[in-house]
């Protein structure tokens, strides 16, 4: 579903992402872990086509991000770490905007809004302006907007930040259900316990380079993800 091959992204001479390669197959959840400034968000933005990379290749469902950006974007739902949504419209208008942009018909969008807004207990608030939402409500609205167009690949940057425990649990359940249905999830997180329990695959990034990646069980061995992460950070592995 997602193939990243030797991508390089430099910011004024500094390599933010340095030859990173990663593959995520359909049905997989991949957790992306690294310290602050390691290059997680930059990598995610490169995949979404928000930033241009200097070299390498990224394909989504066989389509190149560089040469077929629209075909890639149709298959992706992206939620940034800080969901800055249009605060001058109501929640329902924002969802309708996203549905229009992704070409979701009226009946389908109605069903999905009902289902997912209900799951996140957001239905009653949909007529309110986004500017009046709390951080958690914005995060929930962003999640509903991601689900409304039924993408193949979910790219989530710190999706659990700001969510209450119930909503966080709902997100995890949806991620697993979507992957069971053949979709893929690529998400960054600092909550190592969540990554350990939820992910089929783990990728650890340090200073723009992938220092470990593979199936979760293989990466962990007999250790916890926390131990593995700190050993990698300290260069013991």
């Amino acid at each position: 579903m997602l193939k990243i091959e030797r991508i390089v992204k430099t910011y004024g001479g500094k390599r933010a992402v340095d030859g990173l390669s990663l593959r995520i197959r359909p049905g997989e959840i991949c957790g992306f872990i690294g310290h602050n400034g390691a290059g997680k968000t930059t990598t995610i933005k490169l995949v979404c086509g928000i930033l241009e990379f200097d070299s390498g290749e990224i394909t989504v469902g066989g389509h190149s991000v560089k040469t077929e950006p629209l075909a890639c974007k149709r298959q992706i739902a992206y939620i940034p770490d800080n969901p800055d949504l249009y605060d001058f419209v109501s929640g329902i208008k924002y969802l309708n905007f996203i549905a229009d942009v992704y070409g979701v018909d009226a009946e389908t969008r109605g069903e999905r809004i009902r289902e997912y807004a209900g799951l996140f207990e957001l239905t009653d608030d949909l007529s309110g302006l986004v500017s009046s939402y709390s951080h958690g409500m914005k995060q929930k609205l962003a999640l509903v907007s991601a689900l409304i167009h039924d993408p193949k690949l979910y790219i989530l940057d710190e999706p659990f930040v700001g969510l209450d425990p119930k909503a966080a649990r709902t997100v995890k359940d949806i991620m697993r259900a979507k992957c069971d249905a053949g979709c893929s999830v690529f998400f960054s997180t600092h909550i190592l316990e969540v990554a350990e329990r939820l992910c089929d695959q783990i990728a650890i990034i340090k200073n723009g380079k992938l220092v470990a990646s593979g199936e979760t069980e293989r990466i962990l061995g007999d250790s916890s993800l926390e131990d593995v992460f700190f050993e990698l950070e300290e260069g013991k592995i």
Binding site: G91, I92, A99, D100, G110, D125
Partner: peptide, 12 residues
Amino acid sequence: KYREKKTRASGA
């Protein structure tokens, strides 16, 4: 409180 209304789809 939000009350569901019939929505109309439009182009991007």
